[in-house]
């Protein structure tokens, strides 16, 4: 339910959480599955998902969001926005308490910290997916279509774009999302993203790994 920027804690898929732990289909004993659920229960009490977004008109030729100083950087994002007339800037976070819960769990030793971290990654993804679905529904009514969600760090879009998105959305005062000097988001379980709005139906790529610059090194990458 929407309450300002707040969102409900979403349900998460076990498979998603397992994916972030590097799971490749090894057998899972029931105790381990229960461990994941226990971490999830604890995290659900701590997580406070918040989402903020703003829509801007966009002219691909100028590559500028109307009424802002922001020009999305990199060839990949420009290609994605190639036939768009609008852009949604979007940021989401699980909040500081979720981070704290993960730090506390790390101190217990064993794998609880890792498991909770993975569950949290799955959770913030689920928050983003839900919000994206909301956007898509609202746009469908206006016969508009959304591009894939594209985040700083995907393809050749620099992390510094995340800083600009946060500054434009005033994420620090609106949802408590800040960026460190080295470009890291705090709380850590946070996402910034750009979505294009187009009058033309968009192709979706499915896995986000395909556009990632680290796909050849990443232990998590889904390889075909």
């Amino acid at each position: 339910m929407e309450d300002g920027y707040r969102r409900d804690v979403p349900e998460i898929e076990l498979r998603e959480a397992l994916h972030y732990m590097g799971w490749r289909g090894a057998a899972l004993d029931p105790e381990f599955v229960e461990q994941i659920h226990a971490c999830e229960r604890e995290l659900r009490n701590a997580a406070k998902p918040q989402v903020i977004y703003r829509c801007f008109s966009y002219e691909p030729g100028l590559n500028r969001l109307d009424g802002t100083v922001y020009q999305p950087a990199g060839r990949d994002i420009r290609r994605l926005l190639g036939n768009c007339s609008g852009v949604i800037l979007f940021a989401a976070t699980l909040g500081a308490e979720a981070d704290r819960m993960i730090r506390r769990t790390m101190l217990r030793g064993g794998s609880d910290g890792l498991v909770m971290d993975a569950v949290a990654s799955a959770m913030i993804e689920a928050v983003c997916d839900q919000t994206e679905a909301e956007f898509a529904r609202n746009r469908a009514e206006k016969e508009q279509y959304l591009t894939d969600r594209f985040s700083p760090g995907y393809g050749d879009m620099p992390l510094s774009d995340g800083v600009l998105i946060c500054s434009l959305l005033e994420t620090s005062r609106r949802i408590g999302l800040t960026v460190t000097g080295a470009g890291m988001m705090l709380p850590q379980k946070s996402v910034t993203a750009v979505l294009g709005i187009s009058p033309v139906k968009q192709e979706h790529r499915g896995s986000s790994c395909q556009s990632c610059a680290m796909r050849n090194e990443c232990l998590l990458a889904e390889r075909k």
Binding site: R24, A26, A27, Q35, G110, S111, L114, V115
Partner: peptide, 17 residues
Amino acid sequence: AKQIFLPQLLNAAAAAG
């Protein structure tokens, strides 16, 4: 050999520890 993955390795290491 990818028969177990990281959390299971950590749990095993903690038990050994």
